[in-house]
Design a protein around this nucleic acid. Sequence first.
DNA 1: CTGTTAGCGCTTTCAT
DNA 2: ATGAAAGCGCTAACAG
Lengths: 367, 367
Amino acid sequence: MTVTLADVAARARVSPATVSRVLNGNYPVAASTRERVLRAVDDLDYVLNGPASSLAAATSDLVGILVNDIADPFFGIMAGAAQTEIGGPGDGSGRAGGEKLAVVCNTGGSPARELTYLTLLQRQRAAAVILTGGAVEDPAHQAAMAAKLAKLADAGTRVVLCGRPPLPEGEAVVAALAFDNRGGGRRLTEHLLTLGHRRIGYVAGPVERTTTRHRLEGHRDAMAAAGLYGDDTTTEGRLANGRDEDRLTVHGPYDRRSGYDATLELLRREPEVTAIVAANDTVALGASAAIRDRGLRIPEDISVAGFDDLPFSVDAVPALTTVRLPLFEAGARAGRLAMGKETPPPGGIATIAAELMVRGSTAPPRK
Amino acid sequence: MTVTLADVAARARVSPATVSRVLNGNYPVAASTRERVLRAVDDLDYVLNGPASSLAAATSDLVGILVNDIADPFFGIMAGAAQTEIGGPGDGSGRAGGEKLAVVCNTGGSPARELTYLTLLQRQRAAAVILTGGAVEDPAHQAAMAAKLAKLADAGTRVVLCGRPPLPEGEAVVAALAFDNRGGGRRLTEHLLTLGHRRIGYVAGPVERTTTRHRLEGHRDAMAAAGLYGDDTTTEGRLANGRDEDRLTVHGPYDRRSGYDATLELLRREPEVTAIVAANDTVALGASAAIRDRGLRIPEDISVAGFDDLPFSVDAVPALTTVRLPLFEAGARAGRLAMGKETPPPGGIATIAAELMVRGSTAPPRK
DNA sequence: CTGTTAGCGCTTTCAT
DNA sequence: ATGAAAGCGCTAACAG
């Protein structure tokens, strides 16, 4: 029933090996022979058997892209960019030449699913794997991940990290592109401090995530540097010191609902807050909604800031002050790295700069 | 180097066949034997060779989900929902039992890439394929798609359409879940007409897409039913008739930029418009930005409406009037259909209702 | 530049 | 309930 390589070979009056060589294009074949083979392929409407090919070659053309939340443009942009570098442009013939099959796998942020997908990809003998976004910091999971990635690398799979910090033992990884979440978080809060804010609420992401921790640390670094935490003696310092660090922080998932609820909670705990910093833009949107529902104005009563600079952030009203991450560029670079089209950065690690975008949602506090 | 089935068999002191049966769980095996095998698997850290398995079984555990734009939550939500039904929950062992590998492929809306991905999936002997979102209406491409899907179905791949109208010859498809784009578009414009709007600009999606056409047709149906197109004799009708149908419509991609530019263009062509209907929520966001940049207020000066009811739409200021599509539910159902966990609707076709969501961005026109 | 020949690692009748 | 053996369709030495 199904057409095989042998059928094509017979029709083209060559050996199966020659057909294979033509199809893979990685071996010299006479032009006339190639023509004949290609014609036979078209005539017979032949489609290569991927599993058979992968089995014999001990490698497949699958490239996995793991994302924490496929409905979040943060991941969608990176994944899409990576795919453009991996999948061939598609010549319209639908014949599918040497392209890789770039596939994105949605872990939903669950460590178990992350591991499962990695196993599935390992089982498929994937050519490469790209892990995007923050990692879960649970030690057991980290160890399991390191072991799994080492095994993948062992089997010849190229592993690239995109928007995720390098692993403790990073030798299994081709390259790690890490966002400067900490620096971005620090500069964002410095901006708020410069405007005159002192009582700043922070809506953090889920606990035990690198992204969450680094952004929060950046924020706290800035606060501490301004003497707003710990044993300082300024009035503001005393008001906001000590446990305020925790009192003014609420954790939750990276979604608008979390931003909404957490902001209501922060407003309840400390009605005097003059600014809310959100873990990302989506959360900031929820925070803004909560502020408005409480009858407060942005930025006159409360300033709001986000992180990522997703496409919709500039259209928020007022436009959202945030930290821009070059998601597309990073994703594309990860794709190239995964394909071996680009040489890894020195040490395999590159830190990607985050740029502060000041817009209408932040202003000096009232009074 | 790599551990094979035979190694496991040797260690468990059984035959390779038995190990295979234990792993696939589709054959009676004595409990004690199973225990022994499973232990050997763990001891050896064995991972099934997917390609070999697929080759022998003539089917793989890959399920492809094609999307037009992975950075668009419209697709992300459907794809994520489908994946929850397809991938096993992940038991945390990372062992990966009978799960399928649900992978999403980003076509970027390009017909050529769509076909290429289908070929790649065919090559992998995918267990199922889910096509999401609007289809390109070019006859040549439709024919190519129909042929390709027929071939996939022939090879045992289950094909499911989600948010895409059924094919002319739909026998290759397990099921088609179509959104009621036309009805939704009609009700949305009826809402505007009821408010008193007569001069309504329409920012449509890309031409030659089913989604674009159906939503636009719904809009025009409503306009025509109100006597606002064609040879009527009312004052409004005369003002807005004939070529106005085209003059008040601008096509563009489904992104905010397109909404921004198109709205500026509509405002230029017809300064008297009192409402802008956008092809989807993202476009509506761009339209809103353009309206504001022109110094006009929403909804006092101009009403704005979108389509889809994406999560951010309720947080827009003012909240966006739109048409809600049950994206998650549809995606999940498509996933179940692809897995054969749910029986297809009668005739293989189900139309999914669209619900009008009236919010703050629409109001009666001024004066 | 092209043909021959072995497998790649697993599933699956067919026996037992 | 388990084992033996025959491929699945392709690639990759190795010749020529």
